[in-house]
Nucleic acid binder design. Structure first.
Length: 805
RNA sequence: GCGAGUGUGGCGGAAUGGUAGACGCACGGGACUUAAAAUCCCGAGGAUGAAAGUCCGUGAGGGUUCGACUCCCUCCACUCGCACCA
């Protein structure tokens, strides 16, 4: 009888729907917990093949862990607030509420069609009021604990999406959503004090189990750098001392080579000493121009340094009292360090280029050839070159001088050691409709007033107008009956914040909500959070590693510190999946024109075949180009699995298959732990080949085989199991292997001469070196005979023997 | 520029110091069939040879080792992340 995948898959999906065998049980009395998480769906389209890359391994792991006796939490939900959903809704001319409701329904239905064993009763959606109630609650806590503040400043702005963006959302100067150029605009921005958490985030990175390249990406983004902050006295042209200017440097050893100072165009010194700057008009014009340049323009003329001298101001180098001129230039970033640098043209390439452009002096203070370009720290530290022109430090090696100069600066009281981070505070508001409203009001008498917790959730009002107004204010500003309200503190007239939270808000805590998704008293019950603990394995793409995952670390740390959650670590292990590429080599996504739909593959070949094929194409972490090529190998494998039920002969594990079965149990268990589904599949194929050679399989062998294969191909295995054993496969336990039966009593040993294989001979297992040599000398004397003298013999028991002649 | 990774047959890919190319696709041959499809069996890195075999072979070159796709050094190519971060 042929395998009718459509009927069988439908049958089991209906059974799972009805009987809910994958429900996670809070506080299970006997089973230990295991929490498997897949990065929830972004509700902006249908599922595509790329989703199978992360979901199927997670599903296989969840099913495997259930067989092992764990109480598994494997939930799913929708990330539905934010630009992706809003833009998709606008494009289709649908109300975002309806778009998200339908989108959720669709992805859940598609998940079920993939046989994903989620606990669907825990499904959440970030744009549901019952959910964003607690996103707003977390914001209130951040505000109360001084971790959220509103400030006017220059921030990333996407003119196309008409909204402020975080640094994380404008990597490379491009808008994460539309790909357009990001410009700097002065705006009122809600910031979350993420920078304060840099060190704690680095600790999260150290603790999490994750591949090193992903950890490096995160560490790089946080960008810790140790250096010194040095204070320069600031004078005007009449030699009146105005104050100090602080600079940050990691190369304090070059301090005697300073010939000018540079501050960022945003630096507050410009406003503060406006009257002392003689060319203030020119300076203001430059500031105006540079802040509105897109990141792209700034980058495109990296070689061509621009800037303006601050006429009438100069700084004094504290180590030698030398007067140095001041410049503003946009190569200095306002948001990093102190927004001011000391410039040493001989030993910093940017300073070198700037000095050339503006005809500024250069003083070489470390050996090397500075005629064509700067001799930078990488080079001089590597060589440990000698110091020049540096007063009492001249002649010392640079490494020694670095420490001594630092000591001197500290002693003089003009500087200190500091640590800087590239990561900035998180800009947290968007001028868009589709997001969580901020639970705050502005009152002329009381200022910024948080809503009372009992008044949450603050519901996002309905509107038909999703576009910002002429001032660039959020569309909510037009919903006047919602904007105007009473101050919760004094009762006078007040108005609401009309910006909304970014799409990353809801995803920054969602794994916690799955522990207790229907709770209306807290984000989740503390005891339940304690029971389910950190996510044991978190699968999903790597594209969110410097955004979502860092935000997750940040919020979890904060919630831990206020006592809302029991642990600092949201995830024990994160496994970044590769991408499915379309036939142009690009990431397959809902937006790619030639994206293949899982529904299409399921229709033609079945769910089990789709699940196996995607993962037979390549490793979990690898990017794999999608192709139908080779899927017949998978379908014929499944057909062979189906025919196993006609080959059953005997009950217990047979002598012929004992080794193969034990090896298979070991291999599948190990590979599932690491989500190496491709090698699992080939192991199954090898096993089937052996069975077919021998022409039979025993009941015990089939029993174990079906359980092993079930995590990957749940439908066909459930059906065969029921037919052959008249019981349910989900009631079974994961088979155990016996170390003694992993190797045959007869084994093949390659015999090498001088490192080259000459012969593979069959001998008994655990043969000693003497016995093996005797065997070779007597039966394989053409390789080596007893009267030859051997320089050396290397024997690795049961593996290989190498004879050195 | 900085950081990380990858490079293996016609193709997707196995092998993390011990028989390189598992497993699969495509390909060739055979069986079954009136025929085709499906299915089943066999073959297959390259060179050479009738064959046994021998030599070469994991981007290039060098090194460590009895033994290297695997470890180390230099270089080349590609991919990813960050990027005027002081």
């Amino acid at each position: 009888m042929n395998y009718d995948f459509k009927a069988v898959e439908k049958k089991w999906q209906d059974i799972w729907e009805k009987e809910k065998p994958f429900k996670a049980i809070d506080f299970h009395p006997t089973k230990p917990k295991f929490y498997v998480l897949y990065e929830f769906y972004n509700i902006s389209g249908n599922l595509h093949m790329g989703h199978l890359k992360g979901t199927i391994p997670a599903d296989a792991l969840a099913r495997y862990k259930r067989f092992q006796g764990y109480n598994v939490l494997f939930p799913i939900g929708g990330d539905a607030f934010g630009l992706p959903a809003e833009n998709a809704a606008i494009k289709k001319g649908i109300n975002p509420h309806d778009f998200v409701r339908d989108g959720m329904k669709r992805v859940i239905q598609q998940s079920k069609a993939l046989g994903l064993s989620f606990d669907y009763d825990r499904t959440i959606c970030t744009s549901d009021p019952q959910y964003y109630h607690w996103t707003q609650w977390i914001f209130l806590q951040l505000l109360k604990h001084g971790k959220a503040y509103k400030k006017k400043g220059y921030v990333n702005f996407c003119p196309n999406c008409e909204t402020v963006l975080s640094n994380e959302d404008s990597q490379g100067g491009k808008c994460d959503r539309c790909g357009g150029d990001v410009v700097q605009e002065e705006r009122w921005v809600w910031f979350l004090k993420m920078k304060e958490y840099s060190e704690k985030l680095l600790e999260n990175v150290d603790r999490i189990k994750m591949s090193e390249n992903l950890k490096d990406a995160q560490r790089n983004w946080i960008g810790k750098s140790e250096g010194m902050q040095v204070s320069f006295d600031l004078y005007n042209s009449k030699d009146e001392k105005l104050g100090q200017i602080e600079i940050f440097t990691t190369c304090v050893e070059t301090i005697y080579g300073i010939t000018f100072l540079v501050v960022a165009p945003e630096h507050d010194l410009i406003k503060k000493y406006e009257k002392d700057i003689k060319n203030i008009g020119q300076v203001k014009e430059y500031c105006e121009k540079t802040t509105h340049r897109s990141e792209f323009e700034r980058l495109s003329d990296q070689k061509q340094k621009t800037g303006v001298r601050l006429d009438g101001l100069y700084g004094v180098n504290p180590v030698n009292n030398k007067k140095v001129p001041l410049y503003i230039a946009d190569f200095v970033l306002g948001g990093y360090g102190t927004g001011a640098v000391m410039a040493v043209p001989c030993h910093d390439q940017r300073d070198f280029e700037f000095a050339k452009e503006f005809g500024i002096d250069m003083i070489q203070v470390i050996e090397g050839d500075c005629s064509a370009c700067a001799v930078e720290k990488k080079e001089y530290l590597e060589k440990n070159s000698k110091m020049l022109n540096s007063a009492e430090f001249t002649g010392l090696n640079v490494k020694e001088a670095k420490n001594k100069i630092a000591e001197k600066i500290v002693q003089m009281g003009v500087g200190k050691k500091v640590v800087n981070y590239k990561m900035q505070d998180w800009s947290f508001n968007r001028q868009r409709y589709w997001g969580e409203p901020f639970p705050v009001v502005f009152c002329d008498h009381c200022g910024t007033v948080p809503l009372n917790e009992k008044d949450l959730p603050l519901i996002l009002p309905e509107t038909k107008d999703y576009l910002p107004n002429a001032n660039g204010d959020s569309p909510l500003s037009k919903v006047t009956e919602w904007v105007n309200c009473k101050c919760p503190k004094c009762g006078r007239d007040a108005h609401r914040e009309t910006d909304t939270m970014p799409n990353w808000a809801g995803s920054s805590w969602y794994w916690l909500r799955y522990c207790d998704p229907h709770n209306d008293k807290a984000l989740a019950d503390f005891e339940k959070l304690k029971y389910w603990g950190s996510v044991d394995v978190y699968t999903g793409g790597t594209e969110h590693i410097t955004r979502h995952v860092l935000y997750a670390f940040f919020w979890q740390n904060f919630l831990y510190e206020i006592g809302a959650v029991p642990t600092r670590d949201p995830f024990v292990r994160k496994m970044g999946s590769g991408l499915i590429l379309d036939d142009t080599g690009k990431k397959m996504s809902k937006s790619s024109a030639n994206g293949v739909s899982p529904a299409e593959v399921i229709e033609k070949y079945g769910t089990d075949a789709a699940r196996l094929h995607v993962h037979f194409l390549g490793g979990y972490e690898d990017n794999t180009p999608w192709t139908y090529d080779g899927i017949t190998g998978i379908t014929s494998f499944l057909d062979r699995v189906w025919t196993l039920q006609d080959m059953v002969k005997g009950d217990d594990v047979s002598e012929q298959h004992k080794i193969e079965l034990n090896k298979l149990i070991k291999k599948i268990g190990e590979d599932l732990e690491d989500l190496k589904l491709n090698t699992c599949i080939s192991a199954f194929m090898i096993f089937i080949k052996k069975i077919r050679e021998d022409g039979f399989i025993t009941r015990a062998e089939l029993h174990d085989f079906l359980i092993l294969l079930n995590p990957l191909a749940p439908h066909i295995t459930s059906e065969i199991f029921e037919r052959v054993f008249a019981s349910q496969i989900l009631d079974e336990k994961w088979p155990k292997y016996d170390e003694r039966f992993l190797m045959d009593t007869k084994i093949n040993i390659p015999v090498q001469v001088n490192g080259k294989v000459r012969k593979v001979i069959s001998v008994k297992r655990d043969i000693t070196e003497q016995e093996l040599l005797k065997e070779i000398f007597t039966n394989y004397s053409e390789i080596c005979s007893a009267d030859e003298t051997l320089k050396k013999v290397v024997y690795v028991p049961n593996k290989i023997i190498n004879l050195i002649k």
